[in-house]
């Protein structure tokens, strides 16, 4: 075993980046282009998709038929969004998303995922004791609601279309988008009008 000191992540990241730039394998322009991709990935995009689906039945029909194309209509596409499938919550069935093997997420509409979604605990537990996990996150499901967990093991990227909360019938699309949360589109919480 080597007695050598182990590099900190900050030192390792700086070493790799400087070596890639100095060798010419990557340029500053490449990093700028990667940064532009990063900036396009935002869960507020998904909130706009959900609000549009709640307000526009024809859009919702297209979204359920071809999620990738419907999201692209609003300009939301890119890496980790090549095949988006939308899952609709109903009063009878709740849905939630996980990636048990890494942390795959529909980046263009859900953004880069939060730490809890990437945690080994969520990844390990939600397929096995989903009601307990959701309860810990503040969502208690009635016994007559079926729960379906979607494991992102291949190239499909899922987006949950949550239930529109009661009392929002005369709200505008922008008002609705403002109450949609990232957690509700991963499926671990409901949208609340409060």
């Amino acid at each position: 075993m080597s007695a050598r000191k182990i590099a900190t992540p900050a030192a390792q990241a700086a070493a790799v980046k400087s070596a890639m730039l100095e060798s010419g394998h990557l340029t500053d322009a490449d990093f700028d282009a990667a940064h532009a991709i990063e900036e396009s990935l935002n869960w507020h995009n998904g909130a706009k998709v959900v609000a549009r689906a709640w307000c526009d039945p024809a859009f919702k029909a297209r979204l359920m038929q071809d999620g990738t194309a419907a999201c692209a209509e609003l300009g939301f596409e890119g890496p980790e969004g090549e095949y988006i499938v939308v899952i609709e919550d109903t009063p009878e069935q709740k849905n939630a998303i996980v990636c048990t093997q890494c942390s795959c997420t529909a980046w263009p509409v859900l953004g880069l995922p939060p730490d809890w979604y990437k945690s080994p605990a969520y990844r390990a537990r939600v397929v096995r004791e989903p009601r307990k996990v959701l309860r810990e996150m503040g969502l208690v499901l009635a016994g007559n609601v079926a729960l379906r967990i979607w494991d992102t093991t291949a190239e499909t990227r899922f987006l949950v279309l949550p239930l529109r909360p009661p009392g929002t019938e005369d709200w505008t699309e922008d008002q609705l988008a403002a109450i949609v949360t990232r957690e509700s589109m991963i499926g671990v919480s409901l949208v609340s009008a409060a």
Binding site: A7, A11, Q12, M20
Partner: peptide, 16 residues
């Protein structure tokens, strides 16, 4: 594309 010994030198420690 990169050399680990070079990365170790740059980081001042062993990269993982």
């Amino acid at each position: 594309l990169l050399d680990k010994a070079d990365l170790d030198r740059r980081a001042g420690a062993s990269v993982r």
